[in-house]
Amino acid sequence: MEKEELKTKIAELLPAATFEESGEWLNILVTPADWLSFAGQLRHDERLLFDYLFCLTCIDFKTNLTMVYHLSSTTFRHNIVIKSVLDRARPEIESVSHIWKTAEFHEREVYEMFGVDFLNHPDLRLLILPDGWEGKNPMRKDFEDPVNMIKL
């Protein structure tokens, strides 16, 4: 499906979504509240079938945290990018690990690196950071580690 088709299709599914087409792929901005039901629709809709979540990450824009989901369909070979802006002080979004199993690991990574709280995640624990890690989330922009970070 081409960008335009995808856009009309998705606009049907979620009228509240806003689009951005400057990039290579169609970018869709959804609110965290809409995300879970929208994700289910993306995965299971006959004409979309986004079954391959190939990248899940988060960006710290200093004013907010933005979750970025890169989705692809192994049937139709179309790609979209979903973005969701979270409150930086209390970032919360629904987990999609039961829709795409790969999200379980990726969400754990984002959880510890950015402090995003994934609601209803089956096993939200530290994955990479050592047990008992306290303090800030390393990938946030305001993280400072005076011991290990070398300023160039």
């Binding site: 190939f54 990248c55 990450t57 960006i59 970025v68 199993k101 790969t102 379980e104 690991f105 990726h106």
Partner: peptide
Amino acid sequence: ELGVYIVSEGATTPYRIKFRSPGFSNLSA
């Protein structure tokens, strides 16, 4: 599949970079 995701703010350094590494997803299986 290795994905490189660069978010640029127009500076000489990337604002955010994400490597979607194949091993990470494969391990989860």
